[in-house]
Design a binder for these strands. Sequence first.
RNA 1: GCGCCUCUAGCUCAAUGGCAGAGCAACGGACUCUUAAUCCGCAGGUUCUGGGUUCGAAUCCCAGGGGGCGCACCA
Length: 468
Amino acid sequence: MAQSQPYRYEPTATAGGLQAEHGGLEPGTETGERVTVAGRLMLRRVQGKLAFGTLQDSTGRIQLFARAAETPEFDAFCALSLGDWIGVTGQVMTTKRGELSVAVEAWCLLAETRRQFPDKWHGITDTDTRFRQRYVDLWVSDDEAAALRARSRIISLIRRWLEDRDFVEVETPTFHPIPGGATAKPFVTHHNALDMDLFLRIAPELYLKRLVVGGFERVFEIGRVYRNEGLSPRHNPEFTMLELYQAYADYTDMMSITEELVAHLAQEIRGTTVFEYEGRTLDLSVPWRRASMSDLIEEHAGVRVDLGTPIDELRRICEAHGVHIESGWGPGKLVLELYEKTTESNLWGPVFVTDYPKEVSPLARDHRELPGMVERFEPIVAGRELGNAFTELTDPDEQRARMEAQAAQKAAGDDEAMVVDDDYLRALEYGLPPTGGLGIGIDRLVMLLTGVSTIRDVILFPTLRPEQ
RNA sequence: GCGCCUCUAGCUCAAUGGCAGAGCAACGGACUCUUAAUCCGCAGGUUCUGGGUUCGAAUCCCAGGGGGCGCACCA
């Protein structure tokens, strides 16, 4: 071949671009346009002094048409391995059968594959191999690659949408001396020079609210958080959260942002806000239903409970519905557990589940009308929590009392409970304006918008045990 | 962490106690319009690992490993 494995190569066209530009040409057309394309050779059909190849790049596939008379080193071209990276220069044309092709007038090997590519028709079905060797899977699983590329686009769209509304993107620490902002078990690591343990963050929440204190009136972060919990089709130990905070706003504003943002993303990614997911119709059109947790429990469990329900009665109802009860749980925790057991996974949604017990919401502000409740909601779509939001608790004394109550629970053995963060409380003492906050799980959002059912299909390299 | 399922050639899969096989890929050959090209030929194995039962184990049993799903925990 003319040149092997060059240091640099300069494609002038892509497979997808050529298909878009020259689709529908008559069979036997010679456009006279010369292009250079590059990618992997994925299929090959050699027919004596004529060879056809299928080149795949990040935009799609294009046929290569090689005639022995005009293709340099024709035999070597025919001997390429499926999976080899090649570059090809030639005229854009269509074959007698009408297939858009690039005639191979010059070509070079950009990189060889020393390992055999998977079956060209079946691809890889073994999930283990797919996750471990994503670099191969991406070439042979088109739907998979599409979902992972859509993820990038979704995150880009979110950034643009928020920036258009004057939100400022920040990066806050992922090493936390005190884990906070959520109730979850953290990962612990150690800093040698400082000789101190650090926690990988379970949420950026407390730092972002510090920034609102600092004058970032609309702020957001899209970043990785880490929770030391089990794996499942909906859980990966590291996942990506969007958190945003808006000064002067409350949780109703967060509902508007949630439904408008998600509907916008659906429109951009799927071209519609109404589509099928897991065999059922999902309508993400604005506005979404809003319903209180108590009303929804009544709909799905057939019982009316609230914080005024006598505790013994509440325990009896929970047990009757199979909730595993621990001593120390107050009415708020019991109501939440009953909701999660009987109602949440049955909510198709989208629906904003509103009004959570204060007992289970240490960072949310007291409900302005309902005693014992806070102004909090979770958007539920397809039976899954898509996020969590509230009117933020701004009062430092109240916040200290809630953190101390959490710390007491932690001392009593609840390793997911929060601890007191004195610096955060000091920040509140300088004054946090009325603020609405929203967190959205990006991975689950991408699952929804791309139609996949397992979180590992939207994470490029999901957490796995080492191979051996 | 517990339960159930699963692991055979590079990939996709057969073989259900009796000689480990096929398709694609690879390798050799034929072929000037193919589309998962076709045709001929030829190779390819620690059946996840280690024990056990048996005349004989991919297959049955035990232990371990990877993965999937469910439960638990959570978003």
